[in-house]
Design a protein around this nucleic acid. Sequence first.
RNA 1: GUGGGUGUAGCUCAGUUGGUUAGAGCACCAGAUUGUGGCUCUGGGGGCCGAGGGUUCAAGUCCCUUCACUCACCCCA
Length: 433
Amino acid sequence: MRFQAPRGTHDVLPGVSFQWRFVEKKFREVCRRFGYGEIRTPTFEDTGLLLRGIGESSEIVVDKQMYTFDDPGGDSLTLRPEGTAPTVRAFLEHSLYAQGPITKVCYVGPIFRYERPQSGRLREHHQCGIELFGATDPAADAEVIQLGVTYLRSLGITGEEIHLNSVGCPLCRPAYLQRLRDFITPSLDRMCGNCKRRYEVNPLRILDCKVEECRKASAEAPPILEALCEECGDHFRGCRDTLDLYGIEYVLDSRLVRGLDYYTKTAFEFLHAGLGAQSAVLSGGRYDGLVEECGGSGTPGVGFGSGVERLLLAMEAENRTTPQPESLTAFVITLGEAARKVGLTVLNELRAGGVAADIDYAGRSMKAQMKEANRTGAKYAVILGEDEVNQGVVTLKNLRTSEQESVQRQEVCATILTSQSGDRGVNNEPGDS
RNA sequence: GUGGGUGUAGCUCAGUUGGUUAGAGCACCAGAUUGUGGCUCUGGGGGCCGAGGGUUCAAGUCCCUUCACUCACCCCA
């Protein structure tokens, strides 16, 4: 019985890891352009924080989707099921608010939820996200959306559709929820079990239900956008105005609600048609109550999270290619014991000099070594046999042109570096460099 | 947790109404070329046919169980 990666997890192998680096690099570039600094928080947090942050009534908690465990010391810890609450915790713990009225951070990292895996949904997945603290200005909401659009564009994705809604605030939502309940009540006994529970806990989610009976029952429900208080209405209008200013298109979606309890006002979701059932590639919104809920003073916030795996699927659906990983520059080929020794020395010099170089360790024939050199994509084969060793030279073969020349051993590295600087830009760099 | 689909070589897949020793392409290794890659040709290594049980003279094939993967529901990035 061989071991397998745990259900809902996956290995990112060398053949695709450069795509991940590409995506993360683009995300960080865009964040930098918008003034967001990167924050790295722990993979697990105090369970209490996540319960508080996510809300005890959220489906994540109710469905026991959290990886919660007691550590040997008896503390209850949880692998983070989302990125915002940990960021808020760090924001408060380190008093980032003291450095100015506005704090902007971004993060990249793994997220864990115990769910049944399917396409675009894993038990461990990775999210890129941003949080903007301290602004009630609706232009901040628009910036967050704008950053999301810019990020997707930088990956070559253009096929997303932005859904926008407002979920109100503690002033206007309760009244709306009551109206919604009143509207639903007559049909309640026909609805699914989930919705019966939602009716009590979070009636907004009924609008999101896919069961036929529930859809029918809520079809004519009053839209929340008409029930917003003056402040929320103004805010939503302000956000839309700024999006118009930025030329960002979106569709109003009064059924767009949030699974997490802390959201207020603006809610948005970027959907992509190429992904199957799990089509949200980026989603977020405003959470003006969360910081206070987590023990801070009333600080507004707005942000988004975006799944890396789903974005990669979206790129694939749009046939976007990432730059190929940079290959080796030189492959050292030796024949015989004496040449082997010199070859290892040359290899060492090349690497020390900054040339990406490798050598065969399988004791293969020259032909096989040539083949290997070719397979690695190396531009040069550095060939060393008896003749070369005796003459203090190497045979430098250009594998692209098949031309080869004799080069003094001491000059191999310099020769390769010189010729390389001539074709800068030929090889695209995949990620960090 | 609920339903559907699929499990045969490293990968993608054939495998007839059950019938000898389970195949192909790609990949890998070697040779053709005793010091030269890509193209071509020849040869080779690789399989508890997901696992367990059953039916049968005979099971990759039929039946049951189980596991894994996968898609969808729920929920979400």
